[in-house]
Write a protein that binds this DNA or RNA. Structure first.
Lengths: 342, 342
DNA sequence: CTGTTAGCGCATTCAT
DNA sequence: ATGAATGCGCTAACAG
């Protein structure tokens, strides 16, 4: 690894002190440093292809000018949107965005550790079906002075802000809609952890709402209609196809993601079934694609495509605040949005 | 922002020196430090909720233990796969992955600057339709000692590794296939920059292959069949729908992405058209979804879903090498893969 | 076995 | 207007 030039080198080349180099590079003392000196420094810097070392800057300035997004997997559309919005907000104030992907619980530990190590000046924890940060860890982080926004329906604010979405209620509405029409066999296309892991199953809003609605309507849950790991397009298609081939095929499909719901629509159409007459389909979350399926997909989720500028604001308010801010809690509007597929 | 505890504090609390704290925290001198001392340190660290400051570590160790992925937008499936593979590889050796999104050219400058500042120990530049890193910048970066892998078909290796995909040839094959069957009206669903910007249009392998094939077969390009900004699902669907409603509708659609090709299939089916008899469809890139469309989507791309472990290896070989490595160049196999839609 | 110490590269205060 | 000196928090050589 070639030794990179440092401010020392630039100073030497320009015939000034490192202090002057620092001033010039940061545009400080702008009107006290004469243009010729300034030029000498700039030219030396250019000549050496110098840029200040980030780690040294962070150490000295006591901030990284990075924010961190913690997600549980890559390629989920709604998380992409979150990343985009955060990125844009960060960019506006010259901050960068770094993403940590937490595919498993042990990786959750790792993410906590990195946050602890002040790898970023603030963080957003995205909703997840996989990992459960211990509330205690989050509290520790916040108490340590890390601006933190947690998107989660159950965690209690403890020095950090919380963003909620009333998923359970909204899903319940959708299920009621499905069941009130007399349909009794409703399949569930869920995420892996949501369905398989007993703890997370109990905590899952979508799965919970599904089971609870069934119970409310006096229907015994049929485990053979509950599919795990069917949250993305291919698995969703395969699961739906299989379900719809059965002689006792379901009259409705409730999918825990919009992607698998869209796949379910294809599967139904490919099977020659009419939607919603032969089989109704509902998904969770609002993707733009919802508007281009035939029929248009009914969803439970926000009324329009999700937008996370509010979440960004929570974080950056905290980040830029001088003193510690009170905890805030915001709720994203979720509701059952009937379109054509129910 | 609460002052975080430092190794000094831990040392004081444990009644040892900072060196010992460092040794214990890093598991060094593991067999020279007696268990009781070790315990004291660990307990003090736990008590103060201490973790070593990352910036200080990086500065001292002269490495960040992060790698950086530079992409031009979020939410492109193939890039997600790349991110996943890199992430996994990084994880294996205790490295983190940070992603920089370069939505525009000025942001490209910023990315270069960050890389220069040694925000990471190595970087992968993903293929892009948007930004053009100046070869010179990349060379500078590499000359500065940054392990770098660039995924690009035109750039020359200059201290970094290059990953290519023979897109132009493969696309040409697909176009030949389409045109040889007697079809003359072939639409193109392209990315924004690919179609609109004269420079990038000229450089685009997919657009280029399309135009070139047309010329080869003695067909005048019809600009009204060329759609820009139709690289994602919704735009692709809308564009295809519009195209297929025309009285002189195209006999084939060549899409520069797999997602828009899949949308084109839906659009055709929704319009009651038979594929490939009424309209043939080809996309670029290999998504798993390709297997679940009806008919299955013919693509130009790698034979199986893309896998970037080779790319990861290039980077990590460089990263872990003691001395500077020779430049390597690998070529991902791209070809026309006819399935059902042509 | 453990403590002392010298930087890593930079920003900043205080002199001049 | 600019330079010298200090220290951010940590690691690693070197002492002892």
């Amino acid at each position: 690894m070639a030794r990179r030039w440092t401010s020392q080198d630039v100073a030497a080349l320009a015939g000034v002190s490192v202090a002057t180099v620092s001033y010039v590079m940061n545009g400080r003392m702008i009107d006290r440093i004469p243009a010729p000196t300034r030029e000498k420094v700039l030219s030396a810097a250019r000549q050496l292809d110098y840029s200040p070392n980030r780690a040294a800057q962070s150490l000295r300035r006591q901030k990284t000018e990075q924010i961190c997004l913690v997600v549980d997997s890559i390629g989920v559309p709604v998380i992409d949107q979150l990343a985009r919005d955060l990125h844009a907000a960060a960019d506006d104030i010259g901050y960068g965005l770094i993403t940590i992907v937490v595919g498993s619980d042990e990786r959750g530990e790792k993410a906590t550790r990195l946050l602890h190590q002040r790898i970023a000046d603030g963080a957003v924890i995205a909703p997840s079906n996989v990992f459960r940060f211990r509330e205690e860890s989050l509290g520790d982080l916040a108490r340590g002075g890390l601006p933190l926004v947690v998107m989660n329906n159950t965690v209690r604010p403890a020095g950090f802000d919380v963003v909620r979405a009333p998923e359970r209620e909204a899903c319940g509405e959708a299920m009621d809609h499905l069941l009130s029409s007399g349909r009794r066999r409703v399949a569930f296309l869920g995420h892996h952890e949501e369905v398989t892991n007993p703890t997370t199953r109990a905590e899952s809003a979508r799965m919970g709402a599904y089971l609870w609605a069934l119970a409310r309507h006096g229907i015994d849950a049929d485990e053979s209609l509950i599919v795990e790991g069917a949250d993305e397009r291919v698995a969703g298609y395969r699961a739906a196809t299989e379900l719809l081939q059965r002689p006792d095929r379901p009259e409705a499909i409730f999918a825990a993601s919009a992607r698998s719901a869209i796949s379910a629509i294809w599967a139904a159409r490919d099977a020659g079934l009419a939607i919603p007459d032969d089989v109704a389909v509902v998904g969770c979350g609002n993707l733009p694609e919802t508007e281009i399926t035939r029929p248009r997909l009914s969803t439970v989720g926000p009324p329009t495509t999700e937008d996370f500028t509010e979440v960004s604001r929570l974080l950056f308010d905290r980040l830029l605040a001088k003193e510690r801010l009170p905890e805030r809690e915001i709720t994203n509007p979720w509701a059952f949005v009937p379109r054509g597929s129910t």
